[in-house]
């Protein structure tokens, strides 16, 4: 699978990406790529730099290095422009607009197409088919929903822009196992339908079930690359984590 993945056209190429918070360098010269149609997982312990990696790709942190998306170099500090290029991040903590309704959140997800019209309706129906629970909540304020529903909204809102690459930061954080499984199952389905995904996840076994490839991040560096098929046991995983 690894070689098959490698043969796919690279759509996201990250080269020598470093990021710092003040005096602290959180990411050290990271190289990573995602191929067309791939689901790539980024694993690692808390504080390893996984979220910083995604935030740096989206221009939310001060960083150096090159991020190339579909042969175009992305600006380093213009998040809106990066989103307009077709990359959408579902951030850690979801970043939903809590005081606004579910419908308004979905409209803002489709901001780039004006949040209305036939195209908007088509996208909305698609998202509501993926997450039927949101359909009952359209007029409810997003902040009043359960954590799982909020995560569904966060993913649904991201899909409203019909991204060409979806980045997810810890989608399982704070969710019940059943809800996590439901959301990850949906992500797997989206990926099988052709959506490339870069998934940051602390719960490695869950991520490896879906991923074509995985990177392990440790102390701000890529410490290993994993072929999920080679992981047969916790010991195999631990070997990659601690090697």
């Amino acid at each position: 699978m690894m070689s098959e993945s490698r043969s796919r056209e690279k759509i996201l190429e990250i080269q020598a990406l470093s990021a710092r918070y003040g005096q602290i360098e959180a990411l050290h010269s990271v190289d990573l790529d995602v191929g067309e149609g791939e689901l790539v997982a980024v694993l690692g312990p808390n504080g390893a730099g996984k979220s910083t990696l995604l935030r740096s790709v989206m221009g939310l942190t001060s960083s150096t290095g090159t991020v190339r998306f579909r042969d175009k170099i992305l600006p380093r500090r213009d998040t809106s422009a990066i989103a307009r290029s077709g990359i959408v991040l579902v951030p850690e903590g979801r970043g939903i607009f809590g005081p606004m309704t579910v419908q308004e959140n979905l409209q803002l997800g489709a901001y780039l197409i004006g949040g209305r019209g036939a195209d908007f309706e088509r996208r909305r129906e698609k998202v509501l088919a993926l997450f039927p629970r949101l359909k009952e909540r359209l007029t409810q304020t997003a902040g009043s929903m359960s954590g799982g529903e909020q995560q569904m909204l966060a993913v649904g809102r991201a899909l409203m822009s019909e991204p060409r690459l979806l980045l997810l930061d810890e989608p399982s954080l704070g969710l019940a196992p059943k809800v996590t499984a439901e959301i990850l199952e949906t992500l797997g389905r989206l990926n099988r339908d052709g959506l490339p995904i870069l998934l940051v996840e602390q719960k490695a076994p869950l991520a490896l079930k879906l991923a074509n490839r995985a990177y392990v991040v440790s102390n701000g560096r890529i410490s290993a690359q994993i072929d999920p098929r080679e992981i047969k046991s916790h010991a195999d995983l631990a070997h990659h984590y601690f090697n």
Binding site: M58, L60, T79, S80, A83, R84, V88, L89, P91, G95, I96, F97, L108, G109, Y111, L112, R157, S161
Partner: peptide
């Protein structure tokens, strides 16, 4: 931040 992530 979340607004910018939607392309706003």
């Amino acid at each position: 931040e979340a607004a910018a992530l939607q392309g706003i």
